[in-house]
Structures are given as C-alpha cells and as structure tokens.
Design a protein around this nucleic acid. Structure first.
Length: 332
DNA sequence: TTAAAAAAACGTCACTCTCG
DNA sequence: CGAGAGTGACGTTTTTTTAA
C-alpha cells in the first residue's frame, strides 16, 4: 500500500462564524497548490487504477478516516474534456451572498435578511447526502454518538438524594438537574430529569417554583430561582414539594401545585409570564446547543467532502497525465 | 509559571419558516 | 394565523494556546 500526501485547503476552525468557510468555494489549481493555509490529508491508495472503482482511505487532519470510492471508472469516458479546464470548483453547498461581503457597505438589516434565508443545516446536509453516498445524514433524532440519553447521563454525579413521602427519590445533581425516580421501576426507566435554572437574578426574598407538566412524554420540569433545593414531597393526588436553602434545615417556603390553575392576581400573571419566559429561554438555549452541534457536524461533513474531492481531483490529474503520455508520443 | 491572546462555547434576541 | 423550531448575529464567559 502506497501512502501519498495531498494538500487540502482548510482553515480547520469551527466557531460560530462558520459562514466564511461555508461561503468559500474551494479552488484547486492544477499542479500549483500554493495555498497559504494548508492542511495535509493522507491518502492510502488501494487496489487498481483501472477497472472497478477502488476504495481509498483518506486520513483527514482531524484523525478522521474517510472511505473514498474511486472516481475513475474504466467503462466510462473520461470526464476530462479540455486541457484548458484547470480549475476544479468544490462543494458550494451553501452559497452565501458574496456581494454582501465584497461591498462591505451593506446595512446589517439587509445582510441579516440575506443570511437568514439560508436553508437549515439539516436540509443542506441531507440534500448533500442524497447526492453523495458517503456523506452521513443528520438524523431527526439525536445521533447515537451522543451516547446515553440525558437523563441517564445526568444521574452520574448526584450531590443530594432525598426520598419523598411517597417513596420517590429526588436527586439533585451538580449541574442543577433534579431527577425523580420511582422505586418500583427498574432503575433508569423510572427516572425523570428535571432542570433547575439558576440563571438570572432571582427576585429578592422570593421562592418560586414553577412547574410545567408535559403529558406527551411525561416530562416534568421545575424552575427554581436561586440556589434552593427540592426537599420533600407530600402525599395525595397533587404532589407538593418544599424548597430549602442548602445550608439551612428550615423550610423556606412552599411551593407548587401540579397545575398553575386559574390566574387572577397581577402577581400570578407576572409569575406566569416569568414562567413562560424561563421556559422559552430554556428551550431556546437547548435549541441553540443543538443547532451548534449540527453546524459542527455540517462543517465536518464539508471538510470530508473537500478531502474526497481533492482525491478525485488528484486522480483526474493523474489520468490526464497518463492519457497525455499515451496520446502524444515523445518528440525528442 | 503566568499573563495575554485566541478560540470555542454559551445565552439571548430577532427573525424566518413550517406545520397544524 | 399562531406556536414552536431553527438559526444568524452579537455580546459574554470559559477554555485553550502562546509567549515571556
């Protein structure tokens, strides 16, 4: 097996401002890869140059290995049509309006409009993956590479565990996650992950537990401003919990009903508005995390595709050279 | 070892798009 | 048409890298 080295143009940075790397359509000049920032891609060629498509291993800079199918198929006519064609353009999946950058005087609102009309990464990548078999799809669900489900992962380091009067266990993890487990169920399945949001300044002296029941998946969420913890649940159809400061043994206040019920007073309305806002912010927070994860995956995918196309380009160049040698006998 | 710089990650807002 | 998901932009925080 011969190891050869090609060079791929890539900045390697994955940050919030991926738009620059997305917008760039990479160009490879034949025989003159003199691009300032170069990353090396190792290619382990295997199999035949002619005949059935050979599978090539491409070692990406990020220790990824990509299986690349051979691009030269003997039965097919060569894709090389003219010696003058020396520029290979690669993967302009998500075009950004280049003029917006070049002009530089465009106002931010208009620029925002342009940018916000781009399709989602999931769509782009799925379209891309339908074209290229090697490109993985972004699943609708969380990918399995994320590992265990969140409610299992977060049970790893509970700092406090309480038992309610109904026999349920409440664990408060360091990350602010509350977990409720039913002793009757077999461990993990009885777990319910709850999130304590400590962000933002709690109203002074107030202890508000906001509760939202989502019957669809059985998820229950509590919002506890400040650093209080959930201590005890009462019996009955409507579960109630007490909030205590972690350092004191005295109950600080109560707490919650399983449904907000009818809201009348301005304070209740304000609390409801606060609850809705907290819920919206929390969802948006999670959505932003997921969006960034998808974006990173998308960029990785683009980089993989660049490597694949670099390999294709190299093979086409080799084919061109071979054909040149065959067709033009030596003159000297 | 440490301070500064750079990069990455995060939270929030504003907006568009999609779906019921 | 409204609710919610998705995402770009922006400012802030955290982590990593680099130079002294």
């Amino acid at each position: 097996m011969t190891m050869e080295t090609i060079e791929s143009q890539q900045d390697g940075s994955v940050s919030d401002s991926v738009a620059e790397s997305e917008s760039a359509h990479m160009q490879t000049q034949t025989g003159q890869n003199s691009v300032p920032t170069l990353a090396q891609v190792s290619v382990a060629g295997s199999g035949t140059r002619r005949g059935s498509p050979a599978v090539t291993l491409v070692q990406l800079p990020s220790d990824q290995t990509v299986h690349v199918q051979g691009v030269i198929h003997t039965p097919q006519p060569s894709v090389i049509q003219s010696p003058q064609i020396q520029t290979v353009q690669v993967a302009t999946i998500a075009e950004k309006d280049e003029s917006a950058e070049s002009e530089g005087v465009i106002d931010s609102h208009k620029r925002r409009e342009i940018l916000s009309r781009r399709p989602s990464y999931r769509k782009i990548l799925n379209e891309l993956s339908s074209d290229v078999p090697g490109v993985p799809k972004i699943e609708e669900e969380k990918s399995e590479e994320e590992g265990t489900p969140p409610n299992i992962a977060t049970m790893a380091v509970p700092t406090s565990i309480y038992q309610t009067s109904t026999g349920q266990y409440i664990a408060i993890a360091q990350g602010g996650t509350i977990q409720i487990s039913n002793p009757g169920s077999d461990g993990v399945q009885g777990l319910q992950a709850l999130t304590m949001t400590n962000s933002g300044a709690p109203p002074p002296g107030a202890t508000i537990v906001q509760y939202a029941a989502q019957s669809a998946d059985g998820t229950q969420q509590f919002f506890v401003p400040g650093s209080q913890v959930v201590v005890q649940a009462a019996t009955g159809d409507m579960p109630t919990y007490q909030i205590r400061a972690p350092t004191t043994a005295l109950p600080q206040g109560v707490v919650m009903a399983a449904s907000p019920g009818s809201l009348h007073s301005p304070q209740q309305l304000a609390e409801e508005a606060t609850r809705k806002r907290e819920l919206r912010l929390m969802k948006n927070r999670e959505a932003a995390k997921e969006c960034r994860r998808r974006k990173k995956e998308y960029v990785k995918c683009l980089e993989s595709r660049v490597a694949v196309l670099e390999v294709q380009n190299k093979k086409l160049i080799e084919e061109l050279e071979t054909l040149k040698d065959i067709c033009s006998p030596k003159t000297d």
